[in-house]
Design a protein around this nucleic acid. Structure first.
Lengths: 273, 273
DNA sequence: TCAAAAGTGTTATCCCTACACCCATGC
DNA sequence: GCATGGGTGTAGGGATAACACTTTTGA
């Protein structure tokens, strides 16, 4: 249908002229957890954590999924929808949020077409009080292994523990974009295993050329803590002097000192604004 | 609404339970044009070109926009929709295509909510025969200037010439994501000026760490040509020896030679697979 | 002959890696 | 005392930038 005048345009409005669909936003909320070590001298071990929600409705009963919700087209933009979901789940408003990718799993819901725009959100877990939604739970990424053509992830929330396996294949040889496909996944609903893996890839890339990591840090932190966060995201050990050289311009030393750790106390730094 | 059994789930299906919206895909098709120089010795000057379509329907009459179209939710994914549009506009099927961003301009169409997922597509113009859609036209980017907080672009298709100005502002100080806003734009419909600028940013970034540039090159090319394409995308002059060192592993020298150019003939290379 | 681009070599500089080393603490 | 992490200095190697230089062609 094509209109030539304003009159025609307004008069001929037919709400069913175009096929409609529903949209959702899904949010990959990432943080970092610490687990105390037995040896009193050792620093606590760090892991990435993501927030998952348990479904108790048919047909996804007892599966886990990323927090998300349908977009209300009359009221909110996609980003506003994502913020609304985050607020509901964490009771926090000012969380770092970045659009990840728009996935459209054509058969996601048998009743209607759903397109989902996913977001990645980063937060310092210490900012969260206890008011997380009842059906939500933090899962630690206790294992993450990536090679040429597959990714393997193990998640654990203290009582539930499961692994997923994703195959990766370069889409075109001219680019860095991968096609991810589920190989093994018995616990995550929809295509959320793919969203998780894509988000972690994004995070891992961006940590090298942006300061997003500071969205996951408390106001004051030691360089050791910061280095461990880098290491857990990059999934490799870094050399201390090299790390300090990279980070030195991004942080500011404060007067504060952290003691009582079974070794030499460390200076507390904060992000340089 | 929540379902506990399959029976309940299927029986209670209500197509209006969730608010619907319409989706479109918009495609930023980028190529490189050459313009012969007066001096017979000089190589022809290169410019980026993008494909725009002229609207002749109210309320966008005589404005230009990116090729695009509504997604048919029953029949196609977003990417399939983008490919369908590209096929219609260029008569080509195997064009490099990459999802750019999902923009949702809440007041894009006064009659209904439209969300648009944009794609960037790269092509070697030589592959295109004359069968471009009647209302479509290649615009050369004859001027592109970017500084700390604004971008200025001038487009020209031989008969129409216009400029747009976009302000850019870092969204958060921890990241590299910019908020773009139109400052001046009298010719481009919707939010397409923002899509164009975002796409060029993406291309400029990716050229440094991927091989996407070869999607815009013919099978055989000289290193001088290739370097000029890099230069026009990066918007700066590169030093010959440095460029050759970077590129040497990506290309293969062939027996072919290009002569008749008013200077020493150059070897033809092709992309190393 | 000459202007333009093709193509190559060489040096200085920067940055990163790797390693060595000393310091300060709690038990 | 000692294991552990905090914190710093330095030598070596690889990549890059800048420049100089030679080659080859069409008009």
């Amino acid at each position: 249908m094509q209109y030539n005048t304003e009159e025609e345009f307004l008069k001929n409005y037919n709400p069913n002229e175009f096929e409609r669909l529903s949209m959702t936003t899904d949010i990959l909320l990432v943080s970092v957890s610490s687990r105390k070590q037995d040896n009193y001298r050792k620093t606590s071990k760090k892991m990435m954590s993501i927030l998952l929600a348990k479904r108790n409705d048919y047909p996804y009963k007892d599966m886990w999924c990323l927090p998300g919700g349908f977009v209300n087209p009359k009221e909110e933009t996609l980003e506003e929808c994502a913020k609304r979901v985050l607020k509901k789940e964490t009771n926090l408003s000012n969380i770092y949020l970045e659009q990840l990718y728009t996935f459209d799993d054509i058969n996601r819901d048998p009743r209607m077409r759903v397109v989902s725009t996913s977001y990645i959100a980063l937060v310092d877990k210490n900012r969260l009080d206890q008011k997380i939604s009842d059906n939500a739970s933090w899962f630690d990424i206790i294992f993450y292994d990536e090679d040429e053509d597959s990714i393997s992830v193990t998640l654990d929330n203290g009582s539930v523990n499961f692994s997923i396996e994703i195959s990766k294949k370069l889409r075109e040889r001219t680019t860095d974009r991968y096609k991810f496909e589920e190989v093994k996944n018995d616990y995550l609903a929809f295509d959320h295993s793919i969203v998780i893996v894509s988000g972690i890839e994004r995070l891992r890339n961006k940590i090298n050329y942006t300061d997003i990591v500071f969205n996951m840090m408390p106001e004051y932190f030691t360089l050791g803590d910061l280095q461990q966060v880098y290491e857990v995201i990059l999934n490799k050990k870094l050399l201390d002097p090299a790390f300090r050289r990279i980070i030195v311009d991004k942080v500011e030393k404060t007067d504060k000192v952290q003691t009582g750790e079974g070794h030499r106390p460390s200076a507390l730094f904060k992000y340089r604004r």
